[in-house]
């Protein structure tokens, strides 16, 4: 069986994950562990660590431990914690930074959420606008799990019957926003 957790590089060399956590740690230093975030989060019940607990782990443990938690991929960006944090910390942004790190390092355990975001962005890169059916097809292909598309088939059929979406074979060739995406990556890698 494959391990549930596998960073993009061999064990003991995941320096990138550590590096990516540094700005999040810095941002969260003023956290006083009051738990308002956990009490405000609509998804805290489904998380292995509450948001408050995750912030504590982030400040005291190494990177790999943090990425074994599903907490940050269960953030639905409702901004309730950000709005209420008595320290004024941008906690939703912190969750997003963890998602970005997991995406950049292709953390295997989070492939469902990482694959979803990446497939969406792939369709945007190709056409400038997201094509919903192409995006979902790319997502299903990246998951390599037939159970996932089956779950979406009834909804896909209903949407197609309404002519809101149409079946699309993912396109190839030059993308509308290729240069834009390349430049963003270059600027981001520099800083």
């Amino acid at each position: 069986m494959k391990p549930a957790f596998e960073a993009g590089r061999p064990h003991g060399a995941s320096k990138n994950l550590e590096e990516r956590l540094e700005p999040v740690r810095k941002m969260l230093l003023p956290c006083m562990q009051c738990g308002t975030c956990s009490g405000s989060c609509p998804n805290a019940w489904a998380m292995d660590f509450s948001p408050r607990h995750l912030w504590r782990l982030l400040l005291t443990r190494n990177g790999e431990e943090i990425f074994k938690s599903r907490t940050f991929v269960l953030c639905s960006t409702c901004y309730s914690c950000t709005l209420r944090c008595p320290r004024g910390l941008p906690l939703t942004d912190a969750m997003s930074m963890l998602k970005q790190a997991a995406a950049a390092e292709n953390v295997r355990m989070h492939r469902r959420s990482v694959g979803f975001y990446k497939s969406f962005m792939e369709s945007v890169r190709r056409h400038g606008r997201v094509r919903e059916m192409e995006f979902m097809t790319l997502y299903f292909l990246s998951m390599k799990n037939p159970a996932i598309p089956l779950r979406f088939t009834p909804l896909g059929m209903r949407l197609m019957a309404k002519r809101k979406v149409s079946f699309e074979i993912p396109s190839r060739g030059m993308g509308r926003l290729d240069a834009f995406f390349r430049k963003a990556k270059a600027v981001e890698d520099q800083s």
């Binding site: 997003s96 998602k99 970005q100 950049a104 990482v114 979803f116 945007v124 400038g128 963003a184 990556k185």
Partner: peptide, 21 residues
């Protein structure tokens, strides 16, 4: 000639793209 705003997907992958889009 408008393009996608990035939705919540850009934020889940790239901080800069989530602003640039």
């Amino acid at each position: 000639d408008w393009t996608c705003c990035g939705a919540t997907a850009a934020e889940g992958t790239s901080h800069l793209l989530s602003f640039a889009l």
